[in-house]
C-alpha cells in the first residue's frame, strides 16, 4: 500500500526557460506564473527549475539573436532528449516585429525542433497556462501512447486583445492595414477572381493598429486569446478572405467595388448617385462626373 502511494505521489513536471533575446514581455509574464497564485504553474502540477538538464518542458522566448545563438544552443544541448519544447510568443516562430534584422537569426525552428506554439505578444498568463497544458498533454501522449487531447478551458469575458478577424465583405482593398503592420503579418494577393488578404497569427503582435486605421472595420480585434497549437500547424494559423472582383457597370472591367461601409464613412448619407459610384471603375467614374476621362 505504502509503495503504491509513493508511486502515485505527483512528481512535479519541471519547466525550464530560455530567453533568446526577447523584449522581456513573455519572460515577465512567465515570472507571473511562478509568483501569482491565480496563475501559478503549480495548478498544472509543474514547477520551474534553474537546471537545463532537468527540463521536462522547455519554454523559449525571443526572436533568437545572432549574439544569443551559441548560448541558447549550448543550453538546449543540456536538456533531456524527451522534453517538450514550447515557443512562447510569436517571436520564436516568425521573428514577430524583429524579423529580417541583421541581428536576428530566427526562426527558432531553423536551429531546433519545436513542439508547441503559444502566440501572443506577450500571451496573457491564461494563454501561457493553456499552452503549458497542451505541452503536458503532448508529453503524456508520448509517454503513454495515444493522441494528445485538447482540453477546453473556461473562457473569461475579459476584453483582451486576441486574434484579429477579417470581414472581406467590408474590405475596400485600400491596404492601410498592411502599411501600418509592424510585423509584416498581412499579405494581399491578387488572384483571378479577386483580391485575397491573409493574416498570419504567428506573425501578428496583436497591437490592433490595422483595425485602428481600417476605414471600414473590415479588420477587428477579437477577444479570442486561446491560440496555442502544435508547432506542425504553425503555418496554418491564418485569417483569410477574398474580396471578389465585380464588373464595372459602365465598361465591364473587373474592379473592387467600394463597400457600403466606406461610402457611409465618406458620405454620411450616400445618395443614389454616390451609391452608383461604387460599382464603377475609375475611368467610368470620371466619365460620369466630368463627362470625359481625364488624361
Amino acid at each position: 500500500m505504502h509503495i503504491q502511494a509513493e508511486e502515485n505521489a505527483i512528481v512535479p513536471v519541471r519547466l525550464f526557460r530560455i530567453n533568446t533575446g526577447s523584449c522581456n514581455g513573455c519572460d515577465v509574464e512567465l515570472a507571473v506564473t511562478s509568483a501569482v497564485t491565480e496563475f501559478d504553474v503549480e495548478q498544472l502540477g509543474c514547477r520551474y527549475t534553474e537546471a537545463a538538464r532537468e527540463a521536462d518542458i522547455l519554454l523559449i522566448t525571443g526572436p533568437l539573436t545572432v549574439r544569443a545563438r551559441e548560448e541558447v544552443l549550448r543550453l538546449y544541448a543540456e536538456t533531456p532528449q524527451d522534453k517538450v519544447t514550447v515557443a512562447v510568443g510569436v517571436c520564436p516562430v516568425s521573428g514577430g516585429v524583429f524579423r529580417d534584422s541583421y541581428a536576428v537569426d530566427g526562426p527558432l525552428e531553423r536551429h531546433l525542433p519545436v513542439d508547441v506554439n503559444i502566440p501572443g505578444c506577450p500571451p496573457r498568463p491564461q494563454a501561457l497556462l493553456a499552452g503549458i497544458a497542451e505541452a503536458l498533454e503532448l508529453r503524456r501522449a508520448r509517454r503513454e501512447g495515444g493522441a494528445p487531447v485538447r482540453r477546453a478551458l473556461p473562457v473569461d469575458n475579459f476584453p483582451a486583445r486576441g486574434r484579429l478577424s477579417y470581414d472581406a465583405g467590408s474590405c475596400v482593398d485600400c491596404r492601410i492595414c498592411r502599411h501600418v503592420c509592424a510585423a509584416g503579418a498581412i499579405r494581399f494577393e491578387e488572384g483571378e477572381t479577386g483580391v485575397s488578404l491573409t493574416l498570419w497569427h504567428n506573425s501578428c503582435v496583436f497591437c490592433g493598429l490595422c483595425s485602428h486605421y481600417c476605414p471600414t472595420g473590415a479588420l477587428s480585434v477579437t477577444g479570442d486569446w486561446r491560440l496555442d497549437h502544435p508547432a506542425a500547424d504553425a503555418f496554418r494559423q491564418v485569417e483569410r478572405g477574398e474580396v471578389p472582383y465585380a464588373p464595372c457597370v459602365g465598361c465591364g472591367e473587373p474592379i473592387i467595388p467600394a463597400a457600403p461601409q466606406l461610402l457611409h464613412a465618406a458620405f454620411r448619407r450616400p445618395n443614389p448617385d454616390i451609391e452608383r459610384l461604387k460599382s464603377l471603375c475609375p475611368a467610368c467614374r470620371q466619365q460620369m462626373s466630368i463627362g470625359v476621362p481625364r488624361r
Binding site: G95, R99, Y102, V104, G106, E189, T198, F235, R236, R240
Partner: peptide, 22 residues
C-alpha cells in the same frame, strides 16, 4: 543581401502554401 531579409519570404511561402493544402 546583407540582412536575412529572405526570412520573411520563406515564411510567407510556407504560410501561403499551408493554406492551399486545406
Amino acid at each position: 543581401t546583407f540582412t536575412n531579409a529572405a526570412t520573411g519570404k520563406v515564411l510567407w511561402d510556407k504560410v501561403l502554401a499551408g493554406e492551399r493544402e486545406e
